[in-house]
Design a protein around this nucleic acid. Structure first.
Lengths: 224, 224
DNA sequence: TGTACATCAGTGAACGCGCGTTCACTGATGTAC
DNA sequence: TGTACATCAGTGAACGCGCGTTCACTGATGTAC
């Protein structure tokens, strides 16, 4: 079977419609949330009959999986861009830039953020396809930790052996104590974003951006 | 209208059935999650006809609100108990005890945790009834911060004026820098629980309890 | 280049499901005199 | 204490809705010779 031009013509149409479906689905996700994402509604919006979508996605869950992968990719892209825009030797500046970028993306795409970092969608089981895209943001954070850990490592509490083992298996070339610290900063970063996004700062903090920036300062201070 | 015995007989039956409805609803919530919580299914389980529930709750959302209030109360209770069980002057011990208690509750009641600290339920808007119960855990954390802030306050980064203002308005009698630190610890605490519960540690950390304990150590270390 | 056949996208109807909510009703429980 | 009336819990049918998925089909596009 030769890859003729005509073959790719149909294939190209297919790719384009697949993209359109995903775009429309993403819009629906943004407007109504993941649990309310409906194949029929997406098809309706595209002027197709609902059964036609099954030529492109074998099930609703498959479509949802595609959206999850895209969301992870989008936030990963945003994090990488922010990281590239600052001095690669300044750990603090990098963490701050990435932190703000992720928060900004989360505020702009709350349902997508909820989809990937919030509570799991009921009835949906994430397949392994989502594992790799999920690591893109964390890869940036790990790279930041790598970029200048010399001074920090000694000042930080040592994790117990079982934890140290897990952590050095997962991330090599970094002292486990520092990995644990980085994961704590990671937890604080996403914790702060989630608290804000899910309404827990509602009646408490009003200058949210400044508050978050200060939280980043507190995280960065730990790096010594 | 006098509060006669017979009056309270009917009222007592009403209270009991209301409790039964909530209990059954909580079981459904635990099994299938908030988005899948259905009045009809709850009624079916109770051997009632679905319309009968409307004598007790005016809508599905009202029932959901009751569950949210109960969940906040449950985790608040757990936090208070844990706090009472340790030396009131040992900030670190108190934080650790409360942290483990909240995590334990979250692992035991994942859907309830998701309901109150995860992404909002689609289409549901929390009424003001949920505000007060929501503060019960944070009240414990604030009390811990209050219990011995003398040494810590000076070593911590100062928040910018707008943030300091928000924070001293919200929580009086504590230096804003310390409130911000406490909120950072709060974010890290719930961030760590959410990362674990929502599957982000899946292939990384295996001794989760020890990992979480070490995270608590990292938080407590900040108190100086 | 032309023709016979295979592949594929999209249609439209249907299946079977469960949901929240309303409403007129029956019969039991409670209240006022 | 007894009776007439009011309140309330629970019933059962119905409304109107949207969903995911399957299936036999038509007609267009692509392929092999």
């Amino acid at each position: 079977m030769v890859e003729s031009v005509s073959e790719t013509a149909r294939a190209r149409a297919r790719a384009e419609i697949t993209r359109e479906i995903k775009t429309t689905a993403r819009r629906h996700l943004a407007e109504h949330g993941a649990a309310a994402l409906s194949l029929r509604a997406v098809a309706r919006d595209l002027g197709m009959v609902s059964s036609a979508l099954y030529r492109y996605f074998p099930s609703r869950d498959a479509l949802l999986t595609a959206l999850i992968v895209e969301a992870f990719d989008a936030v990963g892209e945003v994090a990488e861009q922010a990281d590239r825009a600052v001095d690669g030797n300044d750990m603090g500046a990098r963490w701050r830039a990435v932190g703000h970028a992720v928060r900004r993306w989360a505020l702009d795409h709350p349902h997508e953020y909820a989809l990937v970092y919030g509570s799991p969608v009921p009835g949906y089981v994430a397949p392994t396809d989502t594992v790799v895209p999920a690591t893109r943001v964390t890869a940036v954070l790990i790279d930041i930790m790598r970029s200048g850990f010399g001074e920090t490592a000694s000042a930080v509490a040592l994790p117990p052996p079982s934890v140290a083992e897990d952590l050095s298996r997962a991330i090599s070339g970094l002292p486990p104590a520092l990995v644990a610290l980085g994961m704590g900063m990671w937890a604080q970063l996403f914790g702060a974003i989630s608290l804000e996004l899910f309404g827990h700062l509602e009646t408490v903090v009003f200058d949210r951006e400044a508050f978050f920036d200060h939280q980043l300062t507190l995280m960065i201070d730990r790096l010594g």
